[in-house]
């Protein structure tokens, strides 16, 4: 059987809210190392990779590897019924066709359980190599959210260029043009308000703003976000989910025809 308990149930609520518009369905792959998900959006332009480690849960048991096919809209409906302070336990028998979600209020005086029907989903698993990137930028997730939101109101695509001057986001549209530059800045006392730019070589890539904007729905999960860029390769937008794991979004660059 599979059983995973997390005291901070709001993390699961935030995760599903971050993913549900991008990916309608996907497999939760569970094993004794944890829970993972790899899913593409419907247009196959971006990929979401979620990894939650076994030791990040308050309790985790998985006797046999399973792929649980989840409809994220339906999972979201159920998780909306959990309180923000609730402990959430996920449970499934081996080869089950349903996932049980149990919500416990902190005071222990309210316990509810919901069964989510599982789906059978054929999905190809993509091998994502570990690699070095030309530029890695860590910035406040709220700053990333603001930049992509602001630029989305001006244009459809953004040119992201990383140089020793900083990281520049440029777009243009019917209204005109916009450029936002962030510089390496470790002045703020709080580490989560700092901007770190690790540049190996200058790089410039163009991306669809619609997707970058959608990734920012993960903002409530982490105070910082990491952007990784290499020429001709997908951008990686990564949110660390505390000690539990991470969610990474990969978006293919736009290339000249």
């Amino acid at each position: 059987m599979f059983e995973a308990r997390i005291t901070q149930g709001s993390v699961l609520k935030k995760l599903v809210e971050a993913l549900k518009e991008l990916v309608t369905e996907g497999n939760f792959d569970v094993s004794n190392t944890g829970l993972s998900l790899q899913a593409m959006d419907s247009s196959h332009v971006c990929l979401v990779s979620l990894t939650l480690r076994e030791d990040g849960f308050d309790h985790f048991r998985c006797d046999r590897n399973m792929a649980m096919g989840i409809h994220f809209g339906n999972l979201s409906k159920i998780l909306k019924c959990a309180g923000n302070e609730d402990t959430i336990t996920l449970k499934a028998e081996d080869n089950a066709d349903q996932l049980t979600l149990m919500f416990e209020a902190p005071s222990q005086d309210r316990i509810s359980d919901f069964d989510l029907k599982l789906m059978s989903i054929e999905s190809e698993h993509l091998g994502i190599p570990d690699q070095d990137y030309s530029a890695e930028v860590k910035l406040p997730s709220s700053e990333y959210q603001r930049i992509v939101r602001d630029l989305t109101s001006i244009g459809d695509t953004v040119l992201i260029s990383a140089t020793k001057e900083g990281i520049k986001f440029s777009t243009s549209g019917d209204v005109g043009t916009a450029n936002i530059t962030l510089r390496h800045n470790t002045t703020p006392e709080k580490p989560e308000e700092q901007t770190f730019i690790d540049l190996k070589e200058p790089v410039a890539l163009t991306f669809a703003l619609r997707y970058l904007n959608n990734f920012s729905k993960a903002t409530p999960l982490a105070p910082q976000v990491k952007l990784s860029l290499t020429k001709d390769l997908p951008i990686v937008v990564e949110y660390q989910v505390g000690e539990l794991g991470s969610v990474r979004f990969y978006l293919a660059p736009k290339i000249d025809d």
């Binding site: 593409m40 196959h44 971006c46 190809e124 190599p129 695509t157 293919a252 025809d257």
Partner: peptide
């Protein structure tokens, strides 16, 4: 003109 490739073109199927 720019075009958009599928994300799966960048990673190997395993």
């Amino acid at each position: 003109q720019t075009k958009q490739r599928s994300i799966s073109a960048f990673f190997k199927t395993s």
